[in-house]
């Protein structure tokens, strides 16, 4: 059980995301193959593997760890998920304290800054059938439960992200390749929302909720 989101936990978060994304890469690719270009799983697998390779093992700053993660994702992923997840991690990192770790409340606020960055970059709103549909409720749930401590907040965020991802199934896509499909994009789980749920589930796993 962790009370503080410190550099060690930030590194472990990135490592566990990489493992879970690698395990689910084929599944994410299949989700993307239904409405996108099918590369989401492979792209994210490559991106988080690169992020693990770029982990700063010496710093005691969670902010520095996740800033490097964001940069690695932008550099390594030749698809939309690189700039989007890269921006997510870099923006949330910059909202963390400059040194050391972060309290649950500080991490909750940072998760919100991260998703705001994603929205500003991609122009997606809630309901557009994107990763935003998982990241927005996750940040809100985390912030609402932050007073219960880091593990409880991370679990609430993971559950909210999963529900948000599942709720993308009936939606019609309004961003990305899937938006060209019109009503044929309905009835499919959005791969970006699905991978965002994995990211938040990894956080819950790491902080011991």
């Amino acid at each position: 059980m962790a009370d503080e989101f410190d550099a060690g936990i930030a590194r472990e978060w990135v490592r566990v995301i990489a493992v879970r994304v690698s395990e689910q890469a084929t599944y994410l690719g299949e989700l993307d193959g239904a409405i996108g270009d099918g590369d989401h799983g492979g792209n994210l697998d490559r991106g988080f593997a690169a992020a693990v390779g770029k982990l700063d093992r010496t710093t005691d700053s969670a902010r520095e760890v996740l800033t490097a993660t964001g940069g690695a994702l932008i550099s390594a992923v030749g698809g939309a998920s690189g700039p989007l997840y890269g921006t997510y991690f870099r923006k949330l990192a910059r909202a963390l304290p400059e040194h050391g770790g972060a309290s649950a409340a500080e991490l909750g606020a940072a998760l919100q800054v991260g998703v705001d960055g994603v929205r500003a970059l991609g122009g997606a709103a809630e309901g557009d059938k994107t990763m935003v549909d998982a990241l927005v409720p996750a940040a809100a749930a985390f912030a609402e439960t932050a007073t219960d401590g880091l593990p409880a907040a991370a679990v609430a965020a993971a559950e909210a992200a999963r529900r948000g991802a599942d709720a993308t199934v009936p939606l019609r896509a309004r961003k990305g390749r899937a938006s060209y499909l019109g009503e044929r994009s309905e009835g499919h789980l959005d791969p970006g929302a699905a991978s965002s749920a994995l990211v938040l589930a990894a956080l819950a796993e790491v902080v011991g909720g």
Binding site: I74, G78, G79, A80, S81, G82, P83, L84, G86, T87, L121, G122, G176, R177
Partner: peptide
């Protein structure tokens, strides 16, 4: 299209 635009926006920012 798509990630080309996102990459360019990230680069400019």
């Amino acid at each position: 299209v798509g990630s080309s635009v996102l990459l360019a926006r990230t680069y400019v920012a």
